[in-house]
Every structure is written in C-alpha cells, then in structure tokens.
Design a protein around this nucleic acid. Structure first.
Length: 885
RNA sequence: GGGCGAUUAGCUCAGGGGGAGAGCGCUUCCUUCACACGGAAGAAGUCGUAGGUUCAAAUCCUACAUCGCCCACCA
C-alpha cells in the first residue's frame, strides 16, 4: 500500500471517479412501489449561464441532501436541466448578430428563433458540465429544458386553463417597459435604485385668471412627460387650490388646454401640492386619469424616443427631450426652480436600463385568488422555509400580490397561444394552432405575436419536468418534491409562483415540503460578485486550487442561518487540507493492515470505547444537522471528529498497539480503525464525495458492508451506533488528554527536547484512580514523551518539579537541571493570580443566597466542584512557589 | 415609510442564560517511519453603546448607533 501518494491530488482522481459513477448509473432513480421516494428539482440555470459562486453553494447543498438520501436507501431523484431564459438568451444572440453587423429584424422571427436554438446547442451545455465537475449527482440521463416539446405543452395548457378560468386576461395598462430590451417586464423584474436627481418646478398658466391667480406651479422629476399631461390634480381639501378646481390650464410648449381636478391621491405637503398628470406614463397618473376621464396620450415610442404626439420634440431620445423641454420652459420663464432631489428609479433586471412606465396592451394573471391557497399551505406547514423568517417575507408579498404581467415583446420563448379572428373579433386560447376561427369559421385568424415571461414557464418546473400534463409514473411517484434550495433573490420571481401553480395543477399538492433559502455569496469586501465589475470569484478556479471537495466543504462551513456570506477563501484552504488529512489518515490505516481480516469491531480498550462513542455522537449530530439544514454546524462536527478526535488521538493511541502488540491486539485495533474510518467516510461523503469515494473503494470491508460505490453504500444508522455511546470512556479519555496536554505544555515551556524522556511521579486521590493510571496511562505515556513513572496515593512530590493537575491525579515532573527556576516562579505567580480571580468570582456566586435558592441543582453542584478544584490548585501553586523560593 | 439581518480574537465567522470557541494569520519548537496541505505549545477578545429582566446576560427584552438587504404608487 506504500504506493499511495502522500498528498491527495484531486485532479488525479475526480474525473475517473465521476466517470465511474456515471457508468454505474447511480444518478438515476428507480421507482420502487410502496417506498417513499426523495426528490429535488434543481433551480434550472439559464442556458446562457456559467457556474458562479451562488450555483456552487446552492448545488453543493442539494447534492448533500441528495447523496445522504440515496445512501439511506431511498429512491432518490435530482432533476436537472436548464431554463431558456427569454431575455438573457435573446440578448446574447442579438449581441452576436450585432457583432456581425445584423439585427434580429434582418433575420426575421423564424430564422432568429432558429439562431437561438443553435446558440443553445452550442453553449447551453456549459453549465451542466460544470455541475459534473463539482460532483453533483443529478439525473443527467433525463436532462430537461424549459422549451422541450413536452414542457411547451405544459406551458400551453397552463395558459389555456387559466385563460378559460378567467385568470388570464388582456388589458391596456401602465407596465414597466425596457426600451433597450424592447419588452414589458413584470413589477418584480424591475430593480429600484435611489438616484440623485432634481425636482423641477414648472409654471403652467391658467387660461383665464381665477380670483387674481393666473398660474399654477407643479413639481416633477420627469419634465419631458409634460408633453403628455392631460390634467393637473390637487387635493380636494387643499384650500390653496380649492378655487382653482375646474379651471383650465394651458400646457406650455404644447398649447393643450387641460383641467385642474381634485383627487385624494395628491399629497398637499409634497412639492407645490399640485401634480401634473400624465396618464400614459405613470401608474398613479393613469389611475387619476381614469377617475377623471382624462385622455391618455402616449408620447413615447418603444425605444424611448418621443413619438409624434410629442410635436416638436418627436424623435428625440428621452433624456435629450428632457434637456430641450427644460431649456424651452426656462426660455418661456416657466421653469420656476430646480431642487436637488433623491428618488427611486426603476432599472431593467437584465440590462440595467432605466425603465419607462408605459401604456400598452399586455397579458396579465389575476394572482389574488391563486395566491390564497399558496399562503395557506405555508401557514399550515405543508411547506416550510429554512430559516423560518423567510416565511414572513413570503406572506408579505403574497398578501399584497398584484397582477402579473406575463407578455413579453420578444421572439425567443413560448409564444402566447391566443388566436384572434380578424373577421368576428373572437379571441381564443387554444392547445392547437388554429387556422380557422372556431366561432365564425373565417380563415382570417392570427396568433398573438408576444411570448410568455420566462418565469411563467419556470414556475412549472417541479411538475412539468416529471411529464405533466401527462399522468406519468414519475409524476405520480416523485411529486411533490422534498426540498427546494435557492437564493433569496428569486423568492418572488420563482418560488412563490411555483407554490401557486404547483398547487393549482396538482390537486392542491404543494411542489416541495422544505424551502432552503441559502445565504447570498458576496466577495471578501462584502460587495456583490460580478463578472463585469471583476469582483467575482470563479468556482472553476477554486476547484482548480482546492479540488471539488475542498470547494464544497469550504462552502458548507460558511452556511449558517445568516443571510449573507462574505466569501472566505481561507475556509477552502483548510478544507483542502482536510481532504488531505482524510487521505493521509486513510493511508495510515491501510499501511497498517498486515494480518488484517474483516470482522466486527470489538472494543478492547477505553480508547476503543471512546472513539466508538464519539462516532455515535457524530452520527447523531450529522443526522440532526442535515435534517435541520444546518450545513455549517454539520461540516464543523465532521471536521472536529475526524481531525481532532480520530487523527489526533485515536490514531496516535493506536500506534503502540499496532507496532508493539501481539497479532490479536493488532487485529483488534485494525478492526476498530477500519470500522471508524469506513463510517466516517460515509458520513463525510455527501459533502466530500470524491476523496471519500477514492479511499473507500480500497478499504477491505466485509461482504456485508461493501458496495460497488460509496455513493450507494448504506448511511450509518444512529439507531445502530447508539449502542456505542459510553460516557465513562469519554470521561476517561478526557482525563488522559488533559494529562498529556499538561505534560506536553511543561515540555514546551522549558524547551525540553522531545527525545529526552521524562520520568514522572503520579499521586492519585484514591485507589480507583491508581488502578486507572496502571491500566490506561501506560498507553498514553508515549504521547507525552513520558519514560518511567511511579504511581500511588502516597507519592511525595519530588523537589523542584512541575505539577500537572487533572481530576483525581497530580503529575509531578522533576525539573532539576532543566529549568530556570526564577522564570518558573514568575509563571507560577501569574498562574496563582488567574486562579485566585476565578476562585473569588465563584466563591462570591456560591455565597449568593439567590443563586443557591434558585439555580438548578446541577449548576450549583458543578460550580461547587469547580471551586473545590480551584482551591486545590491554588494550594498547590502556593506550595510550589514556596518550594522554588 | 414598513420589514429583516449583522455588530464576538488582526481577518472571516461559529456559539446562544451558568467555566469566551474555530479556521486563517501571528509567536516558539519539531523535517519523529500517515500527513510540513503536517505535529506540539502559545499570544491574542471590557462578545457595538445605554438601559432593563434574572440568583446569573455575549446569550432574553427595549432603545440607540453603524453597516447591509428587501418591500412600498417618495409627483
């Protein structure tokens, strides 16, 4: 076994191991009737995407729960695939065309869509390959895409069903228009940002003076929209303006005569208390316009240039128009003043262009009735969020939900299955393309030009990927899924809508039981990771440096209930080192297996009982941690057990028995080593699949324990391991550790060379302790560099010796000729000070009536014992000081 | 305007009523036959501020401060 390299090299093993998993077909899930399955639908990455830190974190989380479930013997499915990502993909392809000097209009719709498919075929698989590099155990044989033929059928059915139920409707509304993407967006696709701007005060003359007043001043942040003003609004109770209500204003630059109306919406304390109303360019203005029957004049084109309605300003880009309007108003003396003003401006979530509120015909989903059952499902716990506080965020949004604008003026996407008859005016949604009007029979029918919001199709992901609307066995078996893990930024865009549609189309069954909202990964400076800003970290680079396991485990260490992670690369470094530690501990075990035969572990020493007890404890903590999705704590528990307990103590303790013992002793310790290593590798596998698999396949296990791959080996059952729980052994080893650490500290303090064995004396408080030292200490002596030792209840402390105190024993280490006694006296004085302070604090507490009366008895008892211990220590230190003096 | 999160060692963060923890970094020693991606020993914190509850507060409550995030029709 000496041919095993002494450093773990991820690159040398990951590829081959992943290939063997694929070959073994372990990623596919088989339906086993009568057995409850486990399933997860991956948040489908965009076809345009490449792996970023959010994916790395989120997919590690999912792979951890998936791998654990699979090992537990449960039929386990992780559905994988990609999203067609309407705007993002269309933008990419348009950019490519642009580079070739063409636009999508040069190609025409059909050719453009073909170009998108071509692009997808070329680049769409990138991110799937990267998931494989991470070791994600998805069902790659059944990869889905949100524009697959079967998926398209699901999308179409949802639209048609909701249309027929009156839940989808068409309306002329103010929507969010991105002039660059040239499409409508839903409200939650708009990102609001505070922008330093101005509040311009404009003077509008009255047609005829009223009571000596000949004008009104309005305040606006978007002066160019004045070209579309159709009334002025004031608050009905605002006495400053009450005489003016009903008066007519002549709009400067335009000349249009518009009325002053009274409307409750107006806040008299803001600006001048008079609002210019542009119903075609502002949501509130639209509503005011509706209430007062004002015209809605659209003064802007789709590309945010001024339309013909803008008269002299027609054709100007919106901000150029703003400048010109302001300049012209100023020339007229109509620009009264310009205040500094910070206000929130909407930007496109895809291209960050400033959104224009714009009046147009769009399709909407009536969300209110759909949201109700989805709210209820979370209230009654059928779906639970982790951490739970996200449920409040969900409720707040769902309870105040507004209609969802689902039409997009794009070419890449699911085309809206609505057909218009130009003869009789019939409008129908249809599962099949229509060539004739179902009402009048006319062949003069045409399909709606728009496509659906990408999120309209992704909301169906958990069930459309399982074959819905067909009643497939997969849908019947794997729906609802168990866990959905995602970032908080798509809670509304995606998660909430999946609950809505999932319940509506699956007999009110929620799409997933648990929702994990994982922390958002920020860079070390706490800023958003962004490729374009160069503030990102590439997971592929990280895997290059730390291995897939190092990256995965390093990320898991950072997952806590917090909402953000400031990415800490040092955790990946220690995780890479951890993988190497696992590798080398395993290497040690395998290099010491001469004469080994597989067999059940039988504890022969306290150390054996201790490590088995700690293993049982680890199993409980890992189960608990994964069940509650506390990945950080779970990772730490695994790390602490393997490194600090198994490697630092058990393996070190095993060495004397492996080297010095008889063959029976050797076999005993070998079996414990192999057993604990095997179980630990299983527990580690979900987080570190590669290194654990690479080692595990070479472990000489008995036939009962073996499997072709660790991936499908059995998960350690706490119910089985719990019999190893052994508090007595834990206390015993704790004491041994205390002694060894104490002796080592003495050695380090006086720089006693490690080759020089220390002969020590041990005084015990009783015969039981003496027996314990005789039985157990010898096994540990080597770890402390102890040579000979004598033990007894009546051992006298040798002159000039250091003392180590542990429960029930005092260790004396003669220092004659080794130590600077003056320095030791100084150290002891400091120690005396520290102990005295702690003892004083405890004594005060123990003489407090309230404490004695009200504190839990075991707490009082613990403090008493501690105080006794400190008293003894203090006496000893004093005695030693007296000796040195 | 409403809501949420954070504030603990130089850095990144765990912990969560009763003896302040980890990783990285730092100091000293050790190339000992699993591992220098290692071993051993150490230094280092008034647990954001001010009140309150409690026998007992880093932990619970209330304010406040600072940073960050989300929501909202802030002309």
């Amino acid at each position: 076994m000496t041919e095993i390299p002494s450093a773990y090299d991820p690159k040398a093993v990951e590829g081959a191991i992943f290939a063997s998993w694929m070959e073994g077909g372990y990623f596919s899930a088989k339906i086993v009737e009568g057995v409850q399955p486990y399933s997860v639908a991956i948040p489908p990455p965009n076809v345009t995407g490449s792996l970023h830190m959010g994916h790395a974190l989120n997919n590690t989380i999912q792979d951890v729960v998936i791998r654990r479930s699979r090992m537990a013997g449960v039929p386990t499915l992780w559905v994988v695939g990609t999203d067609h990502a309407g705007i993002a993909t269309q933008n990419k392809v348009e950019q490519k065309l642009h580079d070739e000097g063409k636009s999508r209009h040069d190609l025409g719709r059909e050719a453009f869509v073909a170009a998108c498919w071509e692009w997808k075929a070329l680049y769409g698989g990138t991110i799937i390959g990267q998931l494989k590099a991470m070791g994600c155990s998805c069902d790659y044989d059944n990869e889905r895409f949100t524009m697959d033929a079967s998926y398209a059928k699901a999308v179409r059915k949802v639209f048609v069903d909701w249309f027929d139920a009156g839940l989808v409707y068409r309306g002329k509304r103010i929507i969010n228009w991105c002039p660059r993407c040239s499409t409508a967006l839903s409200d939650i696709e708009v990102e609001h940002e505070d922008v330093d701007s101005h509040l311009w005060h404009l003077r509008y003359p009255l047609k005829e003076p009223v009571g000596g007043v000949d004008h009104v001043v309005v305040a606006t942040t978007r002066p160019e929209t004045m070209l579309g003003d159709t009334c002025i609004a004031v608050h009905p109770d605002d006495e400053r303006y009450s005489a003016l209500v009903g008066a007519i204003v002549v709009l400067p630059l335009v000349g249009r005569e518009i009325p002053i109306v009274a409307d409750e919406y107006v806040d008299p304390s803001f600006g001048t208390g008079a609002v210019k109303v542009t119903p075609a360019h502002d949501v509130n203005d639209f509503e005011i316009g509706e209430r007062h029957a004002c015209a809605k004049i659209n003064i802007m084109n789709a590309d945010a240039t001024i339309s013909a309605e803008g008269g002299a300003y027609a054709g100007l880009e919106r901000y150029e128009a703003r400048k010109r309007v302001l300049a012209d108003l100023e020339a007229l003396g109509a620009l009264v003043k310009t205040d500094e003003h910070v206000h929130s401006v909407g930007h496109c979530y895809r291209c960050h262009t400033v959104i224009e509120p714009w009046l147009s015909d769009q399709w909407f989903v009536d969300m209110k009735p759909l949201a109700e059952p989805a709210i209820e499902a979370v209230r009654d716990g059928r779906t639970t969020f982790h951490p739970k506080r996200w449920e409040n965020v969900y409720y707040h949004w769902m309870e105040n939900i507004r209609d969802w604008c689902i039409s997009r003026q794009l070419w890449w996407g699911h085309r809206i299955p609505v057909f218009y008859c130009d003869d009789c005016g019939e409008v129908v949604a249809s599962m099949e393309d229509l060539t004739a009007c179902p009402k009048c029979g006319s062949s003069n029918v045409r399909q709606d030009e728009d496509v659906l919001d990408t999120w309209f199709s992704s909301q169906l992901w958990p069930f459309a990927t399982l074959g819905w609307p067909e009643e497939t066995p997969e849908l019947a078996y794997f729906y609802p899924t168990n866990v959905l893990s995602t970032a908080r930024d798509i809670l509304f865009l995606w998660v909430a809508r999946m609950v809505v549609s999932g319940m509506y189309f699956n007999d009110a069954q929620v799409p997933f039981e648990d929702v994990i909202i994982h922390p958002t990964v920020f860079n070390a400076e706490g800023r958003r990771m962004s490729k374009s800003l160069g503030t990102g970290v590439d997971p592929l680079d990280l895997m290059e440096h730390y291995g897939a396991d190092g990256m995965r485990f390093g990320l898991m260490l950072q997952v806590t209930g917090n909402q953000d992670i400031k990415f800490a690369e040092d955790k990946l470094l220690s995780s890479r080192n951890f993988a190497n530690k696992i590798w080398n501990a395993s290497r040690f075990v395998m290099m010491n297996l001469d004469g080994y035969t597989p067999g059940a572990p039988v504890a022969e020493t306290v150390a054996d009982r201790w490590i088995l007890s700690r293993l049982a404890n680890l199993s409980a903590r890992v189960d608990e941690g994964l069940a509650t999705y506390e990945f950080g704590e779970t990772a730490r528990a695994l790390y602490d057990f393997f490194w600090n307990e198994f490697c630092d103590w058990y393996i070190e303790l095993s060495k004397s028995r492996l080297n010095g013992g008889d063959s029976e002793q050797r076999l005993g310790v070998q079996r414990i080593l192999v057993f604990v290593l095997d179980q630990a590798l299983r527990l580690l596998h979900p987080m570190m699949p590669f290194v654990t698999e690479a080692i595990w396949r070479n472990l000489p296990l008995s036939d009962d324990d073996t499997a072709p791959s660790l991936m499908i080996a059995s998960w350690p059952e706490y119910a089985t391991l719990s019999r190893f729980a052994d508090p007595g052994a834990e206390a015993s080893i704790d004491r041994l550790i205390e002694i060894v650490v104490g002796v080592r500290a003495v050695r380090a303090r006086y720089q006693i060379p490690r080759k020089r064995a220390l002969d020590i004396a041990i005084r015990t408080t009783g015969d039981a302790e003496k027996q314990w030292v005789d039985d157990e200490f010898g096994r540990m002596a080597a770890l402390a560099g102890v040579g000979d030792f004598e033990v007894g209840t009546d051992i006298a402390k040798p002159a000039h010796s250091a003392t180590v105190i542990a429960s029930g024993v005092e260790i004396y280490i003669p220092l004659e000729g080794l130590v600077d006694f003056e320095a030791e006296a100084v150290r002891l004085s400091n120690e005396r000070e520290r102990v005295a302070i702690e003892l004083e604090r405890l004594s005060k507490k123990l003489s407090n009536e309230g404490f004695l009366a009200k504190a839990a008895p075991e707490i009082v008892e613990k403090d008493r014992a501690r105080a006794d211990e400190l008293t003894d220590q203090l006496a000893l230190i004093k005695a030693q000081l007296a000796e040195l003096a």
